[in-house]
């Protein structure tokens, strides 16, 4: 089964239709998604800024990381659950959205960034815990995180707009390719 076929199947399920058509559930899920952003991206930003030596310079990096981790993880879980529900409500259009696809790529890169940071420089954090200006790999992780999450927010917000939707043709060849549009040959 192709991903598109899966999304078509998903879109025909009762839950998807109910969520899509609900007067309050969909806005409610979207609001929770946005509010969890403050918890997750907001607090992750504090850690990123600490890595760059821009805030809480007197606090050890590991203390900032450890103390904020439960909150960022909690926020992230809420983001994933509500985000999945938002996708579930509008599967096909979202799957064929250039913004959604861009967002997924940036999400994967953000995950990769966390993995590189934690399996690399953060293992030796005791050596630079109190540094105001942290080692380059740590600063690099902070910059990458700030940029990627900003892009994820903007692309996420843009999913709601239909400039590049597959059913609005003609689109450029790049959009049709990247969004996976099925364009009828004429």
């Amino acid at each position: 089964m192709s991903l598109l076929a899966f999304c078509e199947w998903l879109a025909a399920t009762q839950g998807s239709i109910a969520l899509h058509e609900s007067l309050y559930m969909y806005p409610l899920v979207e609001s929770v998604h946005v509010l969890a952003l403050c918890l997750f991206v907001g607090l992750a930003t504090i850690l990123d800024l600490r890595l760059l030596g821009k805030v809480l310079r007197g606090v050890p990096v590991s203390q900032v990381a450890d103390r904020l981790l439960p909150w960022t993880i909690g926020g992230f879980i809420v983001m994933v659950i509500t985000g999945s529900l938002l996708f579930y409500a509008i599967p096909i259009r979202t799957y064929q959205s250039v913004w959604f696809r861009g967002k997924v790529i940036f999400l994967l890169l953000a995950g990769l960034n966390v993995w590189i940071f934690h399996s690399g420089i953060y293992k030796r954090v005791t050596g630079w815990d109190m540094d105001e200006r942290t080692p380059w790999p740590a600063r690099r992780a902070g910059i990458a995180s700030l940029v990627l999450w900003a892009l994820i927010i903007v692309f996420g917000r843009f999913i709601a707009y239909n400039w590049f939707d597959c059913d609005i043709q003609p689109q450029s060849a790049f959009v049709n390719w990247f969004a996976g549009c099925v364009v009828a040959a004429n």
Binding site: C38, V41, G42, L43, T45, A150, V154
Partner: peptide, 18 residues
């Protein structure tokens, strides 16, 4: 503009919540 509003929200949320 809405996106910038949202980016600022994340920063505001973080700096108030901490």
């Amino acid at each position: 503009i809405e996106s910038v509003h949202l980016l600022a929200l994340a920063l505001l949320g973080g700096s108030i919540l901490i």
